[in-house]
Design a protein around this nucleic acid. Structure first.
Lengths: 228, 228
DNA sequence: TGATAACTGGACGAGGTCTTCCACTTACCT
DNA sequence: AGGTAAGTGGAAGACCTCGTCCAGTTATCA
């Protein structure tokens, strides 16, 4: 009888690394916490008390803090996959044969994701320090978007004075669209994005009205002060 | 000897109503508080502690609360004149013989004012309850802007599907532009506004791509929940 | 089944903010 | 100049949030 088999924890290796080797009930609670946190952050933003998330998860505060030593850790974990989704949006767009369509789809999809999730917007913009864990993905998305931008310009569809930093501009502006209902926020975001995409069209660039210079801002430089 | 003369308080009737009849030192302190609050709110947003404003004003907390019973009252007072400035921007634009230029100037100026004052943006968007005091001015500005919109459309410069609620959209989007330095925020705001104004041009409306419907949002419906 | 180690829940402490209270000081009016 | 009422500053109360601790419970494994 192979003793080893009992020593090897039955790990669903597809699960996130942090959930491996947990006792069954603990892993269950962990998932409940993540689900509740996702819902709550999306609906109310990142400023909800940890106690509220514990309450909605049906666990005590200690359990919450045992799984996620700090609120930031919880936020990071919650939005890790959302960030991956953003990155994959860029990958999909790179596979699109129409450069302009790909470019637009990135902006439309990412803005829509932000519009329906209040917490995602805040997390994205606050650039919480643990985000260094996502540095790699962020850089990949940035490079991918740069390629998209170049292709769309070369195709003559995107105005040539569009700056890389304008993506940050769009995301920040879209982040300002926060209203009571999710539907209203999504509708507002869609309309804003539609306006902006029309402004980005090459045939709408007016040589008589040059754009004000782009501010020297990259996604990684956006730091919203904690108390503001 | 006219007794009355001494009974009549020497009121600088040009001063705000709330400052009338105050003792000289009290009025002085009141002004210092307002100045400090203006600076602090503009630089750091509305979330600065009241104690910080008291410290910068050189007064104690009790004095601050004697003048302004609640933080909200202070915020309201501080931004009352800024709001008036916004309204007068509309009035100026109405006097502009060029409807399109007037329309643009409103958006450009108001957005610039919001960009350089973090607190103003928050106060404007949070629509704090005491704002009912400004209801009249708000309505006046709204009507004025409606006139500007109509004129600009009739002149064939503003796209016909521009909605009144799009002003709210622009202001919310502009409110998302908050970066570390004031200069960067202003630069970002300017570029965003330039893009949007190009999108608003009648000759840039693409009949092949109708806009998503405008969300049913007026300025007075924007309510950002307290904790978010 | 029973020992063990991990897990859980509610109570607790630290820190920060808004607001109030009270003894002292100051400006105004006669 | 002097009395008085208003004004002032610092300390303290109420409330909320993040994060910690300990006694009881539960899953795991021989």
């Amino acid at each position: 009888m192979p003793v080893e088999s009992s020593r090897i924890p039955r790990v669903p290796s597809s699960a996130p690394a942090a959930a491996r080797g947990l006792r069954a009930d603990a892993r269950n609670n962990r998932n409940r916490i993540l689900d509740a946190a996702r819902e709550t952050f999306a609906a109310l933003g990142l400023d909800v008390p940890m106690s509220e998330i514990a309450r909605r998860s049906g666990v005590g505060a200690a359990t919450l803090y045992r799984r996620f030593p700090t609120k930031e850790a919880l936020v990071t974990e919650v939005f890790a996959d959302q960030l991956s989704a953003c990155v994959s949006v860029v990958d999909e767009a790179l596979a699109d044969p129409d450069p302009w369509h790909g470019f637009c789809s990135v902006i439309e999809k990412v803005c829509a994701m932000h519009a329906v999730d209040r917490g995602f917007t805040a997390a994205f913009l606050s650039a919480f320090p643990d985000a260094v864990a996502f540095e790699e993905e962020r850089v990949r998305a940035e490079r991918g978007f740069a390629v998209l931008t170049r292709r769309a310009k070369d195709a003559g569809r995107l105005r040539s004075d569009f700056a890389q930093a304008d993506l940050t501009l769009v995301l920040m502006a879209n982040g300002g669209i926060a209203t009571g209902s999710t539907e209203a926020a999504l509708a507002a975001s869609r309309r804003l994005v539609a306006y902006l995409l029309q402004a980005f069209r090459a045939d709408h660039a007016d040589p008589a009205e040059p754009l004000p210079p782009a501010p020297p801002l990259g996604l990684h430089h956006v730091h919203r002060p904690p108390t503001a």
